[in-house]
Simulated scan of single mutants.
Amino acid sequence: MSTLDPAGPAAHTIAQVWNVMAWGALAILIFMLILATLACCRRPAAQERPPLRLFLIGGGLVVPGVVLIALLVFGLRAGDARSPIPGGEDVYRVQVRAHQWWWEVAHPDAPGGPRYAINQIHVPAGVPVHISVTAADVIHGFWIPRLSGKIDAIPGRTNTIKVQADEPGVYDGVCAEFCGLHHTSMGMQLIAHSPTELPDALRGLSDTQVRP
C-alpha cells in the first residue's frame, strides 16, 4: 500500500510531488550545511559587515517564493490527475457508501444490471474509473494508496474521485479518517481485471444489496 509504488496515473503524479519535495528538501539541507561549515571556518575582518540585504531578500523572499511556487505547480497537477473527467462518458462508474466499519459497493455499469459487493471493487484495468463516495454515518476517508489520493466520504454528500489501475491486479485500500472503535479494520480491495475477465467477475456478485 505504498504511495511510492504507484500503479496508476494519479498515483504516479502524487509520487512525483513527493520526490520533488524529498530531493528539494535534501538539496536545501546540503546547502545550509555548506553555509554553516563556511561560517564556522571563516574569520571575517573586524570591519567587515555581512550582506544583510542579500540574506533578507534572497533567503527570506526569493528562495522560499521559488520553492513554494514550484510546489504549487506540482500540487495542482496532482489534484487535476485525480479529478473526474468532465462529462464522464468514457469512464467506468462505481458507487461506494461507507459504514462503520465496512464499505458498501455498487457497480451500476455491470452487464445485466447493477451488482453489489462488500469491501471489494471490481474495475477494468487501463480504463479511467469514477468512484462516487458517500457515507451512512460519520465521515470516513476513501484511499487506495497505489492508485490515487484520498477523498472524504461525508454523510449527505457525494464526492467523486478518478482512479485508474494500469495493470490487472489487487490493490488494497483503507479508511484514512478515524471513524470509531474498529477504524483500523475497515479495509477494502480494488481488483482490476482485463476487459475479457471483468464481466465474469461482475456476474459472480450479488444482484441485490448486501450487508455484512
Rank of each mutant, 00 (worst) to 15 (best):
R77Y: 03
G58I: 00
S2P: 12
S132P: 09
P195D: 06
C179T: 07
R146W: 01
I154L: 04
Q164G: 02
S2L: 04
D137G: 10
F178H: 14
H130E: 07
C41D: 11
W143P: 03
I161E: 07
I154A: 04
P168Y: 05
V174M: 10
V96F: 00
W23Y: 14
E197N: 09
R82T: 11
G59P: 09
D90F: 08
I28S: 14
A201D: 08
L76Y: 06
A45C: 02
L52P: 05
L4C: 06
P111S: 01
D80N: 15
A176E: 07
P50I: 06
P108F: 10
Q100G: 08
V127W: 00
H122Y: 12
R97D: 03
V163D: 07
A78R: 04
G79T: 05
A45D: 07
A136M: 13
P145M: 15
A176I: 03
R93D: 06
C40Y: 02
L147G: 04
L56R: 09
R211G: 03
D90Q: 01
L52N: 05
Q100E: 13
P9M: 02
N159H: 14
D109M: 06
N159D: 15
D5Y: 07
W143V: 08
S148K: 00
D152S: 14
P168T: 06
Q95A: 04
Y92D: 01
I34W: 08
L198I: 01
R97L: 13
A176Y: 08
M21F: 14
M186C: 13
V129A: 04
R203Q: 00
Q209W: 11
V67A: 07
I151Q: 04
R49I: 13
L61I: 15
R203M: 01
V94I: 12
T184V: 09
I30K: 08
S83V: 02
A27S: 14
G169Y: 07
W23E: 13
V163L: 08
Y116P: 02
H182D: 15
R211Y: 14
G79Y: 05
L68R: 11
P155G: 07
G149Y: 01
I154H: 02
L33F: 15
Q120A: 12
I30A: 15
L68Q: 05
P9F: 12
S148F: 04
L54A: 12
I144S: 03
L61T: 05
P199D: 03
A81F: 03
I69V: 14
G187P: 06
P199F: 10
L68G: 04
P128Y: 02
V66W: 03
R77H: 05
W23M: 11
N19W: 04
C41H: 14
Q120S: 13
R77K: 11
G87W: 11
V170S: 08
L35W: 11
T13W: 14
H99P: 01
G59T: 08
H182T: 09
Q16M: 13
P64C: 02
P9H: 09
V174E: 13
P128Q: 10
L190P: 03
T134K: 05
S2A: 05
W101F: 14
H122Q: 12
P44E: 00
G88I: 06
L54H: 02
Q100K: 05
R43M: 01
G75H: 10
T3N: 15
P64T: 00
T134S: 12
V20D: 09
G65P: 02
G180Q: 03
A81H: 02
V170G: 02
D5N: 13
P199Y: 02
L147V: 12
A165V: 05
G87Q: 06
W18F: 12
